[in-house]
Computed example of a mutant assay.
Amino acid sequence: MNMQTPIYLALDFPTGNEAMHFLNQNEMDEIPVKVGMELFYREGPQIIYQLKEKKHPIFLDLKLHDIPNTVNRAMRNLAALDVDIVNVHALGGAKMIEAAKEGLHSGAADAVPKLISVTMLTSMDEHTVQTDLQQPMELAAYARHLAELSKCAGADGVVCSPHEAASIKAACGESFLTVTPGIRLAGSAPNDQHRIATPAAAKKMGADYLVIGRSVTAADNPKQAYNQAVQEWKNDDNNN
Rank of each mutant, 00 (worst) to 15 (best):
P57Q: 11
Q224M: 13
E38S: 09
N235E: 11
A140V: 09
K34P: 14
G182V: 02
K101V: 03
I212Y: 03
L62T: 05
D125P: 00
D237P: 14
D237N: 03
K52I: 05
G213D: 05
K204W: 02
L115Y: 05
A79K: 00
K101M: 05
K234R: 12
K95Q: 13
Q135S: 04
Q134G: 01
E43V: 06
L78A: 03
E126V: 07
F40P: 02
A108E: 06
R76F: 08
L62S: 09
V129D: 10
Y49P: 01
D208H: 03
A19C: 08
S175T: 13
A201W: 15
I7H: 04
D236L: 02
T119H: 13
A153I: 14
H127K: 15
G93L: 04
S106C: 03
N227K: 15
P199Q: 07
M137L: 13
Q231E: 11
A200V: 01
H21Y: 04
A225G: 08
Q25K: 03
A108T: 04
D192Q: 13
D84P: 01
N17M: 06
Q130T: 09
W233N: 08
E43S: 09
E27R: 11
A189C: 06
K203S: 01
K55T: 07
H65P: 15
P222S: 04
Y226N: 11
C152R: 15
E38P: 12
N240V: 08
G107Y: 12
E98K: 02
D82F: 02
G103N: 05
A143S: 09
Q130H: 12
K114E: 13
S117D: 00
E53D: 15
P32N: 07
Y8S: 12
L177W: 05
V88K: 05
E38G: 07
R184C: 07
V71Y: 03
G187E: 08
S167F: 09
V33H: 14
H163A: 06
N239S: 10
Y209H: 11
T217D: 06
G154T: 10
A111Q: 13
G107Q: 13
M20Y: 04
I168Y: 02
M124G: 01
S150M: 09
P6E: 04
N227C: 13
E27D: 14
A143N: 02
Q50W: 12
H56Y: 01
Q231I: 09
L133V: 12
A166N: 14
Q228Y: 08
V179P: 00
N191S: 12
E174M: 14
D29G: 12
G107K: 07
A219P: 07
A141V: 13
Q231S: 05
D82A: 12
N221K: 15
C152G: 01
T70I: 08
N87K: 02
G16P: 15
M120F: 04
S167I: 15
A155L: 03
Q4D: 15
M75Y: 11
Q193G: 10
P57W: 01
